[in-house]
Amino acid sequence: MAVERGRRLARALVVLVVLAVAVLTGCSSGGSTGGSPSAGCPPQVDPAALACQLRAGDAVVRDPAAAPGVLADAGRSTQDAYRTLGDHPEWDGAVLAALDPALRGQAQHALAAYRALRALDGAPQTMLPAWRVVEPLPADQLRGYYDEAQRRYGVSWTVLAAVNLVETRMGRVIGLSSAGAQGPMQFMPPTWAAYGLGGDVWDTRDAIMGAANYLAANGGANPSRLDRALKRYNNDVRYVSAVREYAAMMDADPNAYRGLHAWPVEYRTVAGDIPLDPGYASDRRIPVGEWLETHPVVPGAR
């Protein structure tokens, strides 16, 4: 775990948040049969358009028949809306008023998490990271690992999923943190040696079990001591808040897990949010300007 005190590059993933909107006229949910989930939303960036994106994405996440590609598109669209809205607190009232109560609650959690992580992450980056980005394991397979760890150690599966999301976007990011943390749950080597159960820090199941073991050893199976356990994982109240908020989204509605699992890696830079899709690979940090010379399109730049 970039656990204890180590800062992590994975933090730069900065997981995102919520919305803002006034009116939903003209918004269609898209549906799961094909096409963009927010195809019926206005093209401009304003509260009404962003709220439409969030409602459309929510409709896809709740549809058990949604095709994988449509779910992935909904994840990207929703994340982009959350990131934009998270940077515009003046839109909060209008957006939240336009959402139904269940989605409003999800939005409030997501917004709080994004703003906590953005404060933790600091200024936009001038360099892209030395990472590889890969496809995550399927949502059902990961959920099985979280559930197994919960049964064994008593730490909620939603907390484990939230840690995995914040640390490496559920395993999409392969790379060391700036402090030397490793694996999909970002362990420092001494911590892994003590709590990794003899497993492989880069193996997803082993890493999730190690994280549950570590959190449980610090009281994380007890809701009243969970904050303390998460601070041992990363000693910053903003990190604790973000994990708690994402876990609360899944506690309130397990469907939220499918949506969060679909969120891609987007890196916050001085040129805007740059998507780092599967296939991105660099063994060195890359100046943003150099990257944009060959990758000029920056979806989501604001």
Rank of each mutant, 00 (worst) to 15 (best):
G75W: 09
S77I: 14
A51N: 04
A66T: 13
V70R: 09
L71S: 08
P42T: 05
R83V: 10
P43S: 05
V70N: 09
P68G: 08
V61F: 15
P47T: 04
P43H: 07
Q79I: 03
G69E: 02
P47H: 03
D87N: 10
A48G: 14
V60M: 10
G86L: 02
D46R: 12
P64R: 00
A56C: 12
P43G: 08
Q53I: 03
S77F: 00
G69Q: 12
V61T: 15
A72M: 05
P68A: 10
G57A: 14
P68F: 06
D87S: 08
A66Y: 10
G86W: 08
P47F: 04
G40E: 11
Q79E: 02
A48W: 12
D73I: 13
D80K: 10
Q53W: 03
P89M: 05
A74W: 04
A56N: 10
Q79P: 02
V70Q: 11
D58S: 12
A67E: 05
D46N: 15
R83D: 08
R55V: 15
E90Q: 14
C52Y: 06
S77W: 01
A48S: 15
D58H: 05
A66L: 07
Q79H: 08
V45N: 14
A67V: 09
G57N: 05
G86C: 04
V61W: 15
D63I: 03
Q44A: 14
T78I: 03
L71G: 05
E90F: 04
Q53A: 07
P42E: 11
P42H: 08
E90A: 13
D73E: 12
A59L: 09
A94W: 00
C52R: 02
A81N: 01
D63V: 08
A74L: 11
A72D: 09
P43F: 11
A66G: 12
P42W: 07
P47M: 01
E90T: 07
D80I: 07
T84A: 13
A56Q: 06
P64A: 01
D87R: 11
D92S: 15
D92K: 15
A51E: 09
D80L: 13
C52A: 01
Q53T: 04
R83P: 00
L50Q: 06
A81M: 01
Q53M: 04
D46E: 12
A94E: 14
E90C: 05
H88R: 15
D80T: 09
A66V: 13
H88Q: 08
A67W: 00
D73A: 15
A74P: 15
E90V: 07
D87K: 08
R83W: 02
G75R: 01
A67D: 09
C41R: 05
D58R: 09
P42M: 06
R83A: 15
V70K: 07
D80H: 06
A49F: 14
L96E: 08
L85H: 13
R76V: 01
P89C: 02
L50F: 05
P42K: 08
G86V: 04
A48R: 10
A66M: 10
D58G: 02
L85R: 08
A66R: 11
A48V: 03
L96H: 14
P64H: 00
Y82R: 11
